[in-house]
Amino acid sequence: MNKDGATLKQQPFLTRLIAGWLIPGSGHILSGRKSTGWLLLLLVNTLWLSGMLLCDYEAASRLFHPWLFWAGAGCGTTVIISYVDPAADLLLRGIASVQEYQDVPRWSDTGVLLVYVAGLLNILCLLDLIDSRIDPTRGTASHDQRREEA
């Protein structure tokens, strides 16, 4: 609701869904659920960003994680970064890999885990957006916001 009491105009559902996929939490903000949206934006993006920095963007590389990558694809930016693939330089081949493997950062696996958990959590957030759209008992965005703040 804006200051005049009129209902806030919502973006089209597909726009909110895509925005929520690209930037976790933004879909909820565009739906009018600002407190939930900002909380999700802060938490999920913190997980994603800290994970990416810890693993040197390895989590966004389908070379390193051809299957687990799709768990992280719940966050759209993981998919976008995978096309650039900054971690491709880290891939070691041949005899040199035996000696250089010791240089893998200690927190690399933890970083990958954080990114994939962020991706799965964002899928949960997107499902919540879809549920609020298809379930008639959820009511309007302003109604959901009031219930959350209660």
């Binding site: 939930t36 954080l114 949960l124 957030c125």
Partner: peptide
């Protein structure tokens, strides 16, 4: 690693409770 586990579980808990259907929530977030 224990600290990382606890922080991760805390994040998951808050996100899970945030997107749980609001009609079922009796206590605050």
């Amino acid at each position: 690693e224990l600290v990382v586990f606890l922080v991760l579980t805390a994040f998951i808990s808050v996100v899970h409770v945030s997107v749980t259907r609001t009609a079922d929530r009796k206590d605050g977030l």
